[in-house]
Nucleic acid binder design. Structure first.
Lengths: 248, 248
DNA sequence: ATCACAGTGCGTATTTTTTACGCACAAGAT
DNA sequence: ATCTTGTGCGTAAAAAATACGCACTGTGAT
C-alpha cells in the first residue's frame, strides 16, 4: 500500500505541515512518533501526480486530524542540500527502515527533496489525531517544549511561528478556537502567539468593537469561577476584515 | 548543452523569478521573449541536484542580470495542475519547440511541475539583462503595462507585488535604488509600490529621522531644476531596522 | 536681471491610534 | 460574609500618523 502510494506521487517535492492548535491556553503542534523508535517528526506527505498542491495538503491534514476545510498557509520552502539537524542522514535512514519494517533500497524516500512548509490552524477540540503508516503515535506538543525532531523540523516550527506572529493581523487565528469561546480565551490566544502581555481591558474594548464577533445569548457552563460570556465569529465578516488587517 | 543541463536538475520543481527594478519612477520587471515567437515569460530556472534552492535562485538571477548578492524573497509556491492561463498547454509546447529549435519528445520539460516563486529587488542601473538559451530578448517592462505571459506568470507578478506591498516594512526596498539617491526618488519608490500618495514633507521628516540614511556631501549632477541632496544607505543599520519593521 | 516654477527642507497643528490604568460588578470557593 | 478571579466600562495620557503653511534654492524663460 505504501509502495503503491509512493509510485504515484512527486518524488522531489515533500510537504511538511505545522498543525497548530490552541489547547488549554497553550499553542501546540501535532507531532508523529515513528514506529519502533523514539524519534519524532512533523506530519508530512507527498503530492500525487493527479492532485494540486493545495489538495495534497488538505488531504494530508484531513488524514491526520479528521478535519475538513482547515485553514492552511504556505510559509516557506526548505531546499537546503543537507536538511538533517539533530540526526544524520544515516541515522534517519535507519529509523525509517525500522518504522517501515522493510528495506528501503529501491524506495528512495530520502534522496534530494525540496519540502514545502505549510502551517494549519485547527480547532483543538474537534481534531482527532491519527498516526499514519510509518508512525505509532500522533499527539499534541507544546510549541515551547518540543523534543528534538528529525530533519530540519524544529527549525520549521520556529519559522512557522515567526510567520504567524508577524502576519497575525492578516491570518484567521480565530480558527484555533472552538465555535463558542470567551473573550478571555481570545485574549490568551493573542498573548501566547505574540509572546507579550496585552492589556485585558484594552483588548476587550477593541475586540468588541469589531462587527465580526457575535455575542451569544449563553454563558460558558462548568467554568471555574464565574460563567463568562460566549462569543462566536461571523466568519464571512471576519475574513473580509482580515483582508484589511485586524488590529490587536 | 541544454540537454546536459536538464539531465542534472530536479525535474518536478521549477523556479520563477519576478525581478523588480525601479527605473525612471516606475516599477519594472524583467521579461524574456521566447525565440521565434512573440511570447513572453518570467525568467526562470531549475535546481541542480547538487545545489541548494537558494543557490539555484541566486545563480539564475546572476545569469539574467549579471548581479551578485541580490536580495531574494520566496513569496509563493504555485502547484495547480493546470498552470496555463492565456496560452494552452498545447500552444505552450509548440512555442517551446520553436524556441528550442528541436523536438521535445524526450525532454519532458512541460510535465507536472511545482514552481517556486521568488521576487528579487535589484538596482536597475547596474543590472545588465541577458537572454538565456531559449530566448531572444531580456528586457524591462512596466508592471502596470505587461503583455500576456505564458503559464500563470501574470498572476505570479500580481502576487509578488501584493506580497511586497504588504511586507514593505520588513523588506529592503532600498535595494531598488542606486547607491546614491535623492529623497525624492525614495519617496516616489514608496508611492509606486504602495500605490497611494504620501505627503512629501512628512515622508521627508520620518525618513531623515532614521539613522540608516547617510546624508552625503554631494548633490545630484545634471538634475533638471535644482541639484538635490544625495543620500545612501548604511545597509547594516538598515537591515537591523527592517527586522523590527520600518514605518512608511 | 528678474520672475515663475519645481523641488528641497523645516516647522507647527490636528487627528487618530495605542497604551496605561482605575474601578464596579458578578459569582463560585471557603 | 468575604476572598478571588475574571468580565465589562470608562477616562487620560502618550505616541504615531496626517495635514498643511511657508521659506529657500537654483534653473530656464523673458
Amino acid at each position: 500500500m505504501i509502495r503503491e502510494y509512493l509510485e504515484n506521487v512527486l518524488k522531489e517535492v515533500a510537504l511538511d505541515i505545522v498543525i497548530f492548535a490552541f489547547r488549554e491556553g497553550r499553542m501546540e503542534v501535532l507531532l508523529l512518533k515513528w514506529k519502533h523508535t523514539d524519534k519524532y517528526s512533523l506530519p508530512g506527505g507527498r503530492i500525487r501526480v493527479d492532485e494540486s498542491l493545495k489538495d495534497a495538503v488538505t488531504r494530508t491534514v484531513e488524514e491526520r486530524t479528521g478535519l475538513k476545510g482547515v485553514f492552511l498557509q504556505q510559509f516557506q520552502v526548505f531546499g537546503e542540500l543537507d536538511r538533517y539537524a539533530y540526526y544524520s542522514a544515516q541515522q534517519t535512514r535507519e529509523y525509517l527502515e525500522r518504522a517501515l519494517g522493510e528495506s528501503l533500497e529501491d524506495l528512495d524516500l530520502l534522496s534530494r527533496t525540496v519540502s514545502i512548509g505549510y502551517y494549519a490552524l485547527v480547532n483543538g477540540e474537534r481534531a482527532q489525531p491519527k498516526p499514519d503508516a510509518f508512525t505509532e503515535a500522533c499527539a499534541w506538543w507544546d510549541v515551547h517544549d518540543l523534543p528534538r525532531l528529525l530533519f530540519d523540523h524544529n527549525h520549521m516550527i520556529v519559522r512557522a511561528l515567526e510567520t504567524l506572529r508577524r502576519e497575525i493581523r492578516y491570518q484567521p487565528v480565530g480558527q484555533l478556537l472552538p465555535e463558542k469561546f470567551t473573550l478571555g480565551e481570545l485574549h490568551r490566544l493573542f498573548e501566547v502567539i505574540l509572546g507579550i502581555p496585552l492589556d485585558r481591558r484594552n483588548f476587550h474594548k477593541i475586540v468588541t468593537g469589531y462587527d465580526f464577533l457575535i455575542r451569544l445569548n449563553e454563558k460558558k457552563v462548568g467554568a471555574a469561577i464565574r460563567a463568562p460570556q460566549l462569543y462566536s465569529f461571523n466568519f464571512k465578516k471576519y475574513y473580509a476584515a482580515l483582508k484589511e488587517g485586524v488590529g490587536l
